[in-house]
Amino acid sequence: MSDTRRLCYTVDLRDDAELMARYKAWHGPGAVPKPVVDAIRKDGIRDLEIWLYGTRMVLIMEVGPDFDPGTKAASDAANPEVQEWERLMGTFQQPLPGTPAGQTWVAMERIHSLKEQA
């Protein structure tokens, strides 16, 4: 059994072609600021991908068994460079209906796994 867990989150991009192109550019190879990448890795995220269809994005993280989203959120809140990044990215994002105030990405619920099927 693997000690890696997968977590998925979702948010929409604002429906504006120019903003969407800029958002993609900010996430290209080497474009994310090093302190942000370092903070992601330091907090136990082993891999992270963002997928896009239209304006809908899905973030997929692979984390170790000790990863805690609340601890990661607290670490990010205390990191000025991560907060600057979050503010910038928030200008491109449109929270889904029902998203708690002040939040963009929301956790998705896994409802199916092929590994659990007979």
Rank of each mutant, 00 (worst) to 15 (best):
K34N: 01
Y23M: 00
V36Q: 05
K34M: 09
E62H: 15
M20A: 11
Y9F: 08
D43H: 07
R14H: 05
D15F: 10
T55C: 06
M57P: 08
A17F: 10
L19H: 01
L13R: 07
A31C: 01
Y9I: 04
D15M: 11
A17L: 13
L48Q: 06
V63L: 12
L19V: 01
P65V: 02
D43S: 13
V37Y: 12
R22A: 06
G30M: 11
A39L: 14
A25S: 15
V32W: 02
H27S: 13
R14V: 03
L52R: 14
D38K: 15
V58P: 05
Y9D: 04
Y23G: 00
D3Q: 13
I50A: 09
G64A: 05
P35M: 09
V58H: 00
L13Y: 01
I40K: 03
G54I: 14
D38I: 02
I50Q: 11
D43I: 01
S2L: 05
M61E: 15
L19W: 03
T55H: 00
T55M: 01
E62C: 05
D43Y: 04
A31Q: 13
A39D: 15
L7W: 11
G44Q: 06
L13M: 14
D16V: 05
D38M: 03
L52V: 11
L52Y: 01
L13V: 08
E62T: 09
E62N: 10
T4H: 14
